[in-house]
Computed example of a mutant assay.
Amino acid sequence: MLNTILIILFKLGLIVLAVGAIAYFCACLFLFLRQTRFIFFPSRLISMTPDDVGLAYEDIELKIPIPSGKVETVHCWWVPAKFNSEKVIIDLHGNRNTIGANVGYAEQFHQMGLSVLLVEYRGYGRSTDRFPSEKTVYEDVEAAWNYLVNERQINPNNIYIFGHSLGGAIAINLALNHPKIAGLIIESSFTNIREMIDYKKKYWMFPINLILTQKFDSIAKIPALKMPILFTHGMDDELIPSTMSEALFTAATEPKQLLIVPGAGHNNVRQVGGEQYWQTVEKFLT
């Protein structure tokens, strides 16, 4: 009788282990297939336009052919400089915001004498409604680069790139592809997705190195960049620790600058930084 009970318990244990293993495998598969949903949070809401801050602008739609034969679009705003300045800055937003969230930055750059191209990745705002990935956002900003260089005939030496948060990682990748750019401003960004996962401490039980395909590995790319780089970050950033900008700064080659703003969070470095922030950015650009 005892042997029979032990055999039953043993079989039940095997069943529980098998069910647990299947559930774990399914969870890993889900994370592998759906990980973009944990990185991108596309919105269609455009909260502001350049009109709201008195800037003249032009709506631009960039065409991107896809393998199916269809053509998708990347929506941009072109804000021309007040005067005949040759300097242009590409403005790249973060993972939760549309193009409208960066209107304040556009106003700042415009006041500093630059033309601004604000880019909206596919899946966001008025761009084609498809869920983004690391590959597609790189394609989107490459289309923006080609538009400036080929259609507007902007000299690459006069083009700066600004990226906030995830936009910073996208900016770094674009700069890696176009080393002749004038300079790079990276605000409130991270080292890579792997280290962000470690920082959040949510997925420690999964084999992340095997699952992860969306890497945004800025810390590996930054040493290869030779253009001037300005890193800015809020000391009280609740989403991405300022130590990640410090790590990027350390990994970067000269010329480079780092501005950590006390009291600033993830989305208000410019506002809290005030005059110091303004002067640092203006000096970098001019």
Rank of each mutant, 00 (worst) to 15 (best):
V149T: 12
L166E: 01
G168Y: 02
L148K: 11
I154Y: 08
E142M: 09
R152F: 11
G163T: 02
E151L: 14
N150V: 12
G167V: 03
L148A: 09
Q153R: 14
G168E: 05
R152K: 15
N150L: 14
G168N: 06
N173K: 15
A171C: 02
I154P: 07
D140R: 00
H164W: 14
A171K: 06
G167R: 01
G168R: 07
Y160D: 01
A143V: 07
W145G: 09
A171S: 05
V141G: 05
G163V: 00
G168H: 01
S165F: 00
Q153S: 14
A143D: 10
N146M: 13
E151C: 11
H164I: 05
I159H: 10
G167T: 01
R152Q: 15
G168Q: 04
I172D: 05
V141I: 08
Y160A: 04
P156E: 08
I159Q: 12
G167C: 03
L166Y: 01
N155Y: 11
F162I: 01
G168S: 04
E142D: 10
I172S: 06
W145L: 07
W145V: 07
A169F: 01
I170K: 00
N155S: 15
H164Y: 07
N146P: 08
G167I: 02
E151Y: 13
Y147E: 12
N150K: 15
